[in-house]
Structure formats: structure tokens, C-alpha cells
Design a protein around this nucleic acid. Sequence first.
DNA 1: AATGAATGAGGGTTCATTCAT
DNA 2: AATGAATGAACCCTCATTCAT
Lengths: 184, 184, 184, 184
Amino acid sequence: MDKRELILEATLELITENGFHATPMSMISKKAKVAAGTIYHHFENKEVLLEALYAESKKKMGRAMQLATVNGENYETDFKSIWISLFIFYADNSNTFQFLEQYAQSPFIRKETKEEQRKHYQPIIDFLGEGIRKGNLKSMDVEILTEMVHGTVASAAKIFHQNKGLSKNAIDQLAQFAWQAAKA
Amino acid sequence: MDKRELILEATLELITENGFHATPMSMISKKAKVAAGTIYHHFENKEVLLEALYAESKKKMGRAMQLATVNGENYETDFKSIWISLFIFYADNSNTFQFLEQYAQSPFIRKETKEEQRKHYQPIIDFLGEGIRKGNLKSMDVEILTEMVHGTVASAAKIFHQNKGLSKNAIDQLAQFAWQAAKA
Amino acid sequence: MDKRELILEATLELITENGFHATPMSMISKKAKVAAGTIYHHFENKEVLLEALYAESKKKMGRAMQLATVNGENYETDFKSIWISLFIFYADNSNTFQFLEQYAQSPFIRKETKEEQRKHYQPIIDFLGEGIRKGNLKSMDVEILTEMVHGTVASAAKIFHQNKGLSKNAIDQLAQFAWQAAKA
Amino acid sequence: MDKRELILEATLELITENGFHATPMSMISKKAKVAAGTIYHHFENKEVLLEALYAESKKKMGRAMQLATVNGENYETDFKSIWISLFIFYADNSNTFQFLEQYAQSPFIRKETKEEQRKHYQPIIDFLGEGIRKGNLKSMDVEILTEMVHGTVASAAKIFHQNKGLSKNAIDQLAQFAWQAAKA
DNA sequence: AATGAATGAGGGTTCATTCAT
DNA sequence: AATGAATGAACCCTCATTCAT
């Protein structure tokens, strides 16, 4: 397996468990079964490693949302489909979820990196923007609405991980929670 | 001013800015204008200092919510009043908000500490539980509903701090967002 | 004894023996019988430690030259007296001599530090300048003459240390060597 | 061009600029446009590379002095001719000069290597020895005299490089400085 | 209670060297 | 002969904590 991949994986696991500063490079190298110096062949330093992990995670999140079945016939159905896709991604990838939550606003990630990775989030912004224009959603600033809707997914995922699971019914109820909040 | 208070204040400010591990005790002692050893007269070690800060912050949050005018006449009005009280506390105390968000789930805070500080949160759980029983709110697990509603406040506060402000109108709209989500 | 002094002394000894990069801070701390961190209480980092040592050494050199008996009656006698004073300092302080020779032009010492420490050398420049004006010495650029005369002292000191000693006679002969070179 | 030669050249340039320990093998390999491993095909390790460079440099110095026109008619003229030949070599090859000055006494060069490379210096020792015997030069230990005379060349070269040049006149004056110092 | 110099374990990072290709 | 990814020991430096004052 690619060493770069092994390092990123070990980093994700350790960093969500211990936090950035409580995860020494030596611990990462041990978990990745790689020499300490090898990490530095692939990542300039610890910060760059973190940023690479952030970029990788955002990319995966973007891909997950594109798996939602959106056919444009019924806005509510499409909305819930996207909501559930993201929820499932967060539920299935607890480390990635925690990592993104924790580092989204941290000073470890440079503004430019965040800006650049925003592209993976653009489709959902567009979808909500369209909903606002068409009158399906509340007439709000689209950035604010996006943040609020995303907040409902994040809260739901947090509950999922605390509970170590959630029934199909409960998930649908939470999607409904989000939909009623956002709809016009 | 009490040295203990000065230390806690300096810690809050520095830790939200830099994170736990990127905030040396020496930096705290400098900001608090206190000798390094003095911190250890008031707090056994760095972790204990953090836990004390957590307890203090939760207490303040609890007090803020008790300022809401809840008269029991109209459930929706009371719901929004509490929602806005908490939001205002988070808006006015950005460091405390950030700190609680960041460390609520971090491994730095021992489970027992978290459990103990839950008491400050009990009134709102009771209020929502009553709403469910009375049929004002969705019939959901009260813990789940509480987490979801709290999530809307946290998202709103995050937006407030990113935007560096939010109009009265926008705040009311966000309270409405939460209410429509939660109501039966 | 002052820890700062102990550290400087250990550094001088080790650095002349091994060179800057071959002398780990851990080695210095061990020789000075001081914890590694203690060095950093007295010197910001390794480079600053080196610069402090340089400044200290230049100061000592300046003091040594002021011990020469210069009465202004006979220029040749005064010239040789100064020459021998500096020679004796270099002979008696082999480490300081080696250190100054080695680091005088090294990139470790910042230009500003060198400029600043030049003051300890000013008296001899003045003395040689006066000799040129009065016709006692060759009519040359005073900086060049100073460098050449200093070179003779340095060469003599090098010989002294290689030979592990030099007779009074030989020293006088070398002072004479320098005088004949420099005199008009 | 021969890779061995490229490596030696890169090493000379980098080592005079940064010093031995501040010049990683990777830096040398990059400058020489050669893979890291390739250096180890030509030189057993870093120390051996340094010693090879030392030997090469001493050889070049020896060759330069042999270019002096020495016809045995006038000792003073021959003395100055040799002095100037060496000076010109040091002036033209600033890196080699610096390197030899810096590493002549350093612990990096083994005694045996230094002994072996002394052969390139033998002709000048013989020339000065003859001058002493014939009464042209001061009656001194020939090794001491050689060191002192060489010191004047080295000082002159140092001045040359600091000044970034020196007039023909000045050079003659410095040769005269050396001659008056050494002559009987 | 308060101070701050001192400690030394442990962190991020570098780099001489190896070895499979 | 030549390559360059990989190694891991060793470096500089930081910082939680102690303790004599």
C-alpha cells in the first residue's frame, strides 16, 4: 500500500483520538509502520500533513454528497436525499467527521486551504440557493441557510456516534426536522 | 482582582486562540501577570486548570439561560425566549462559546466532570421534555431533541461570529428556523 | 559560580575542540553541569550563545592589549610591547585564540556583532595610524597594515601552540620580524 | 564532465559558504546534479570526501607555486616571485583559500592526510632553508619562518578578498612587507 | 501565598547512509 | 555506475513542573 496513504490514515485515526499536539510524529510513524523520516518525504512538516488530511477529507465528503439521488422532480425529496447522503457519510466515517468538525475552524488550517476546499461544498450551496429562489426554502442568505442545514446534519451525526447507532426511523425523523426548519 | 480569576481569564483567552497544547503555562502566567509557580498554588496541574475553566464556563451558560423570560403562557414564545437567551450568551461570550464547543467532546475533559456540569443544562432538558409530553414538540427522544435544538443555537452563534454580527431580524428568523424544526 | 559563566566556558572549550556543529547543546550542558533547558534561560538559542562567546572573547582580548606598557617615548618599543601583549594573551588563552581565529570570518557571527566588538580593537588601530602619520611605519592603508600586523601575531601564536611553547628569545625575534615588516 | 570532479567542486563551494556540518550530502548531490547514492560510489563517506578535497586543494596550491619564475640569480627577487605566485593563487581561488585556511587545523583532517600533503609545500621550505643558510634570511628555525612567511601571504589574501581586490602597487608593497620581515 | 530559575523528558525535524531497482 | 526512497539516530529546542527563597 502507498506509504503516503498509510501515513494519512494513521494521522486521521490518532489525531481524532488525541488531538493535533498530543499526537507526536513518532506515534504516527509507528502506527503507519514507517520510519519517522519517511513522513517528511511525503509532507514538508506536521502542519502540511494536517492540511493534506483536511483536503483529502473534504474531497471525500464532496464525493459522498454526489451519490445522492437528485432527480429534480420533488424538491423536498431531493433535499432529504442529500441530507441523508451527508449524514450517512458522517455516520460511516466517524473519524473524518470528527476531524472536519474539529479542524474546520482551527487555526491549523490556513484560510487559503479552506477556501480551496470549499469547492467540494459548492453543489449543495447551489442546490439550496435554487430552493430559495424557487420559493421552496425560507428566504434567507444562502450561506447562513447552508450553515444551519449543515449544522443539523452535524448534530445528527454527533448523536449517531454518541448513541453508537440510530434507527432508520430516527434518521428520517431528523431529516424531517431539518426539512421543516428550512422549508418556506 | 483575584489571581485565580486572572489565571482562568488568561487561560480562556489563550486557549481559544491557540488550543490547549499550543498554550504553555508560561504564556498563561505572563498574560495573567503572575509567576509560573503561582498557577500551581491554585490548580494542581494544567488539566485541572482546564477542567476548572470548563466548569466555570458551563455555570455561566446555565445562568444565562435562566435569564430567559419564561411565563408558561405560550410554549412557542417561551421556546424562542430560551433559544435567544442562549444565543445571546454565545454571541456575547465568543471565547467561552468556542471553548465549550471545542472541549465539550475533547478527551481533555474527564467524563465525570462533564456529567457533573450537566446539571446546568437540566432546566432546558426539562422544558423540552414537557413540550414533547404536551404535544408542542415532535415526539422524539428528549436527549436527541435537546442536542438538535442546541445544535441550531450553536450554528447560529458560529454564523454570528463569522459574520461579526447579525441583525435582530436575522436572529428572529433563526429562532423561527429552530422552532419550526422542533415543533410537532 | 555563575551558571552563565559555566556555560560559556564549557562552550569555548568544546567548540574549539569539535567545531560549532559538532558540539551538541547536550554536550555543553553536560560539561557545564547544567540541565539542557538551563542554557536556554541564559541564551536564546545556540547562535546567540556563540555570539555571546564571541563578544566575551573580544572583550578579553581588548583588555589584554591595554596591559601593554606604552609610554610614547619610543615608538618601536611601544609597538613591540603591544605586539607581545597580544601574543601573550593568545599564547595563554589557546582556546580563545582558536575560537576567534575560527569564527572571526564565519557566517555564524552576524555582521552587526562583529562591528560592535570592533571597538575593543580600536586602540591598536589608532596606535598604528599614528605611527603611519609620524613616519614610523610604512605609508599604507591603516586597515591593511593592522590586518597584516595582527596576522604576524596570529601566526606566532599558532606556532606557539603547535610547538607547545616558545623561548623568550624566539618571541622577541618574532616581534622583531613584525617590526621590521611594518617600520617605514 | 567527470562526476567525481563535479562532486568535489560542489563540495568546495558549499563547504566554504556554509561549513562542513551545515552542508548536507543532499545539498551537495543537488548542486552537483547527481543522486545522493552516487556520492558514495566515489567517496566512502563524508569525511573521506572532505579529505579528498583537502588533498586536491593542496596539490593545486603546490602547482601554483611552481609557476613562480625562480632563476637563482637574486634571492630577494625569487622570494618575492614565490610570495606573489602563492598570493595570486589564493586571490584567484578564494574558495580553495578559505577551505585550506579553515580546515588546515580542523579535526576533520586526519594527521596522516596532513603529513602526506605536506610534500606539496616542501619546495618552499627548501627555498627558505637555503636563504637562511646563505645568510639572506633571518637565522631562525625554518619551520617557524615558513609559517610566518606563509602567514603574511594568508593575511594579504584575506585582505584581498575582504576588499574585493587590491592594486598591483599594494600587492608589491605587501610582498615588500614580507621580505623586510624575513630578510636577515 | 508568591516567585521564577532550574530541570530534563519529550517534541519536531534533519541528514548520513543504505539498498532495491 | 547511478538512482532516490527509506531509514532511524541524533539534533535543537520547548515546556510542565518543582523548589529554594
